[in-house]
Structures are given as C-alpha cells and as structure tokens.
Design a protein around this nucleic acid. Structure first.
Lengths: 209, 209, 209, 209
DNA sequence: CAGTAAGCGAGACGGTACGTCCAGTCTTGTT
DNA sequence: AACAAGACTGGACGTACCGTCTCGCTTACTG
C-alpha cells in the first residue's frame, strides 16, 4: 500500500509479512465479536498469534489499525455491468449496503470517523485509504454510461469533478445514514426509489445548467 | 427528557435539578476539549462540581450521557421561511452544517452512532431523541410548500411517509458524509447544488409515478 | 507505625486496614516462593486478594513494600536472659541467623540493601525501620550486663554510642556475611567462637582505653 | 575467567578478545550510572559497541555478567606492609572501604549476593570468584605476622582454617554492614577502633584456648 | 417538628486495558 | 562460525478509568 520496493536494503531480521495479514484479519474478527469500544489491542495480538509489541511496531494505535482493517473491506466493491446506469447504481448501492450490514464495517467505520473529527492525520488517512479509493466507482460508472450514450461527455472538467464529489457524498451518505442512523434496512425497494430520485435530479440539473 | 411526571411520589431528598443541567453542560464542554474517546466520566463530574455517584445515579454510562448532551444541540434547528421550498431547504442544510462544524456535535454524534451499531437500546434512544424529533423539519417544510402551492397534497399516506424518510436520510446523510467523511466544507455553493439535484429528483419522481 | 490518631477527619471511604496486612503477608509469601527478582507486584496483589491500584496507593514500589515486609520479621528478635552476657549474645546471634535462614529474609533484605545503594530515601527508610529499631538489642544487652555487674557503667556517652554502633555492625555484618556471602551456616559452634572473640576484644579495648 | 586454553581447536571465526573486555567495562560503566536494577543488557551491548547476541553467547544473564564485572574490582586489593599486623589490617580495611565506596561495587556486589540467595550456582560462582580469591589477604597477613613474630605458628590446621574464615567474615561483614546497611562511612577512626577490638579478641581467644 | 429515607461529595475499592520496556531468541546478510 | 542489526514472543511495569462501595453529612418530605 505504501512502499513497493525497499530502496535501502534493510539490515537485521525483516518484518514478517504474515504477521501484518494475521493482525488485520484478527482485527476484523474482533470487531465482529466485540465492536470498536471493547476491542483491545492485546486481544487482537493474541488472536493473531503475535506479541503486542509487534502490533505496536507497525501501527500507532487502535485508530490506525482499524482504518487499515476496514479499508480492505471496501475494496470488494465492484461496478456491475447491468446494462443501464440506473441498474448499475442500484447494484453498487446494494453492495455497499451489504458491506455496511457486516458488523466489522458498521462498528469500525463509524468509530474511526468519530475519532477523525479530532485528528487531522487520521482524517487524511481515511480520505486516502477509503474515500478517494472508492470514488473510482463513480468515475467508472460515468464512463460506462457515456460509452452507452446515456450521458453526454463532460465539457467543464471542474464542474465534472464537483459532480463526482456530490454523487459520492449523496450515495454513501444516504446509505450510511439509512442503515446506521435511521437504522432501517437499505433493501431493493429503497435502493430503487433512491436511485430514481438521484438520477432524475442529476439529469434535470445538467439540462437546466 | 427522561421522567415527565413522577407517578410514585418519591420520599427522601429529591434529586438536584441543577446537577443534571451542570452535568450535560460539562459533557459538551469536555467533548469540545477532549473529544469522545478522551472524555472521562470522572472528569465530567469534576467539571460539573458533582460526585461521580451523582452522575451514575442518572445515566447508565458514557453513551447515554452523550446522546442526551448532543440531542439538545439539534433542537436549535428551525425551518426558516425564505419564500420558496428550495430556499428553505438550503437554509436547513446550512444550519445543519453549522451545527456539525461544532466539535461537540461532530465528535459526540458519530461516536454515539458507532456505539449504537452494537447496542439496540442505544439505537432506539438515538432514534427517539434525535432522528424522529428532527423529522419535524421535513414535515413542516412539506406542509409549508403545499400551502404555497409548490407541492400537491399527498394522496398515498404510506408513500408520503416513505418519501419523508428518504428525504431525511438523503439530506442528513449527504451533509454528514460531506463534512465528516469526505472532510470538505458544506458551504453555500454546495448547498445550492445539492438542493437543486434533490428537488429536481423529487419532482421528477413524483411526476413519473 | 506512622499515624496514631488521624487529626483531620478524613472524608471519603477510609482505607481498609485488612488490605495492608494482607499485602505484607502476601509479599513475604511471594518472597519465599519466588525471591526478590521474580516477585511481581501484580502477583502480590492477586495473592492478597487486592487490586494492584490498592497496593500502589500505599507503597511507591517494590523496594518500599519489601522493606516494610522484611522489617516486621526482625521484630521477632528478643534478648533472651541466659544469665551471662556471653550467653545472651550467643542467643541473639543464633536468633538472627535463624531469621536469615528464612528465604524471605535473605532475599528481601539483601535486595533492598542493594537498591538502597542508589537511593538515599530508601537508605533512610531501612535505617529507620530496621537498623535503628534493632539497636535496642545492643542497648538492652549492655544495660542487663551492667545490672549484673559484668560491665561498668559507661562514663563517656559519645564513646558509648560509638561502641554500640561498632558492636551492631560487627555482629550483624559477621552473621550476614557468614550466611549470605560465604554461604556457610552460622551454627552454635560458630556463634560461640564469634562471641568469644567479640567479648574479649571489647573487654580488652575498654581496659586499654 | 572461563575458558583457559581451548582444547578443541574451534573452526569458524574465533571470538573477539576485545569484545569481552569491552563488555565488562561497559557493564561497570552502566552500573555506575544506572545501578543494578536499571541496568539492561541491551544497553550494555550498545555501550560496548557489540550486538546483544555476542553478549549472550558468553554470559548466561545479568547475574553472571555482573559477578565477573565486579570480581575484577576486588583484585585491586593488596596487603600493604606497614610494619605491624594492626597497621596492615587497618590498611586492608580502608582499601576495602574505598572499593565499596565506588558505586559499581556497592550496587553490583549486593545485588548479586541478593540473587545468589536463591541460586546455588551463582552462590558458588561468587564464592569462587570473590570470597575464596580474597581470603588470600588473610592468609598473607597471618604469614607476615608470623614471620615478624607477632603471631605464633599455628598448630591445629583445622582450627587455623576456621579462624581464617571467622576473620574474613568479621572484617568483610563489618565493613559492608557499616557502609551499606548502617550507611555510615568506614573512615580511619572507625578502622582503628575496629581493628583494635578484632586483634584483642583474637589474641585473647588464642591464649585462653 | 422529629424521624427518616434518599441524595450528596469524597475517595478507596476490584478490575481491565493501556502503551512501554526489557529479557532472551531468532533470522537476516556480512565478515 | 562469529558478528551487527533488528524483528520476534512473552511478560511485568506503573498509570488511567471504569463502575461500585462505603463513609459522614445534608436536605426535604412525612407522620
């Protein structure tokens, strides 16, 4: 995720590659069973079959560890090709809702966002590992719709970027709010209704520009 | 917020009314300075000039206390009468963004939502104290728009309720996601763009029903 | 040992008297089983059925705790009345050797002395709790010998004090060195030989003054 | 101190001779600065410019290392020829007190003795490296006094050995107790008083045998 | 208006987790 | 094979809070 090929040939025993994977898996497992607030790093280390020091050597604390553990979950998201833009969006919305239905994602994501309200570095880490990385879905979706002729090619690149951000916040925000704050399921019906409003809104906005 | 009218006339010394207010104020103060995770109930008690036992006699723990402390913040929200539905919505969106810019709200709200992912009772408490209570804004807004003739009177009450929920999740979710996850400001420009998409979407959806 | 009657009526829950006793007993028990270096305060707390915090609330660390635990052991020493000064001294020497044969005394005393080489406060605590307290034996022995007419009443008080110190260092030092450094038993034969040399030396020195 | 002459000609790279010396010197340096309990083998290795593995290849642990480091200090002791037995003894006593005034000796010696109370192998190592080695001073002193005619040649070899042990324990024990437990200086005055008592006692004891 | 039941401040209590430090071992590549 | 470097497991450290408890004191309703 960060260093590809170490330029300076490190001396001493190299860090175990297995350890990092085991720790992240153990973190997700513990999030499922215990949730954020009862997750302890000592317990994660034990589950991973690793000493606490090994864990602290690689992550500064609970926040950083959980961001990394949760970020991997969202990499599962793919843009399905269902033939129409509306169907594609509905598909992503449902996938997203499915991930947010998993306890490790629910608990981990919100807690980390809460912590980030007071920690600029953590905020940046979230933006980098999660937000920016997943905006790819919006970009792909638009490109595919343009290829199909459903959307015209964008003319103003700045405006286009602003629209991508807006779509991302609206989609992700609505799903998160529905499932976590309102605590109602984001099922197919809901996804269909939401997608319709979103697409009509976007279409109307682009025409009346 | 908890007991309205005590049915069983309590004997013994009654609970100090000042204490509750001082504790909630101290909680918000501590949230500002320390954030959720570093806020300790011992510290809150000290700030409020109260013993820890007094605090525990009224709230079961950190979560419950913070829900109450944060819920009060959202009672500030009012629906401004700016003449058009679009302007009214923009006004509420900006007010909401302003509250979410305050550290006690950012940190407290998200943390409590995170905890609620694993605590049904807390989830219910949030729904009751925050979500349901603030849906009044959507209802008022619709009523006012209908009075102005901007919207037709609803025909299907079930569909109408579903739309209220959708609007609430989209508005609240988008603002929260924009400010807390994407960590970008929800300023006037953004509010205008967002409102336009939302209204066009809703209008289109209601016509093509 | 320290506060007789609390003048200022303490507020809050009073400290448990049983806890202190249980902790000191547990400390001696752990010293027997584990020795100084493997004794951990967490283990002592567990044995005493007490939380670690309770232990730390009363003692600053391992050193202070062990000084107190060991000091009590030496309070068992009494000056037997065996009829002659020589016999009395032999008796004390053997009692002292018996105590030093107990593992909690051996291990605890020397370790604490070792730590005290770099800690003036600890040195003072040892002097107060052990050295000064046990010099009473030398004083009593002299008084009894004077009453029997075995020793003349002292004339120069400064010289007398210096002699008490010398006797104490020679007796305690020889027994400790014999048992702990040379690692040979301080049995009756040895005690008899040692006492004879000591008494003859003291008698000779006082005559040739 | 450990391997005299390697019988089996070792293959591979031979052990660095400088390393051992550097480690022992670093150990004494660390004892001075940190004392026994805060001395860490990692720090010693760093000071000696050596890897931890090198250190562990030669010593089993902290105890063994410190015994060796401290034992060398006592090899400085020599029996001065001041003309009379009394003066010779006073000289050794003062030399011994001087060494014990050095922090590396105080702290290291007592700590190692404390550890030895629960470790027979370490006890044996101390007896071998320090006790037996330094008894030479008592033997030399007696021989010299006999040559001068101050003492008669011994007749009973068993009794003579017992006396050597007694003298050693009394001298070493008194000095150690005086300086480390009572925490008073063993200066010239004290040495003179102590020596007088010791010699008179020994003389009296040998006459009345 | 005396009695009494509950509330109150203070702070000790049994626990649990923290994040750090060190012991002693192991795994690299280098000498 | 010894070496420097440094990651590894394991375990104790001393601290910080949690939520409970036990004090002595205060307050307002009740009989």
């Amino acid at each position: 995720m960060q260093s590809r090929t170490p330029v300076t040939r490190a001396s001493g025993r190299p860090r175990s590659a297995e350890a990092a994977a085991a720790i992240l898996a153990a973190t997700r497992e513990a999030l499922v069973e215990l949730g954020w607030s009862k997750l302890t790093l000592g317990d994660v280390a034990t589950r991973a079959g690793v000493a606490k020091t090994t864990l602290y050597r690689r992550w500064a604390g609970k926040n950083e560890l959980v961001v990394d553990a949760v970020a991997e979950l969202f990499d599962e998201l793919v843009l399905p090709d269902r033939g129409t833009l509306a169907a594609d969006i509905e598909g992503v919305v449902l996938q997203f809702a499915t991930i947010l239905a998993r306890p490790e994602a629910r608990s981990g994501l919100m807690a980390v966002v809460a912590e980030a309200t007071r920690d600029e570095a953590l905020r940046e880490r979230i933006r980098e590992s999660i937000v920016t990385r997943q905006k790819r879905l919006v970009l792909e979706g638009r490109a595919r719709a343009q290829a199909r002729g459903e959307l015209p090619p964008e003319t103003d690149p700045l405006e286009a970027a602003r629209t991508v951000d807006l779509i991302f916040d609206v989609v992700a925000g609505a799903v998160v709010h529905r499932t976590l704050v309102s605590a109602e399921p984001a099922d197919e019906d809901w996804a269909r209704g939401f997608t319709r409003v979103l697409l009509l809104g976007l279409k109307g906005a682009s025409q009346s520009d």
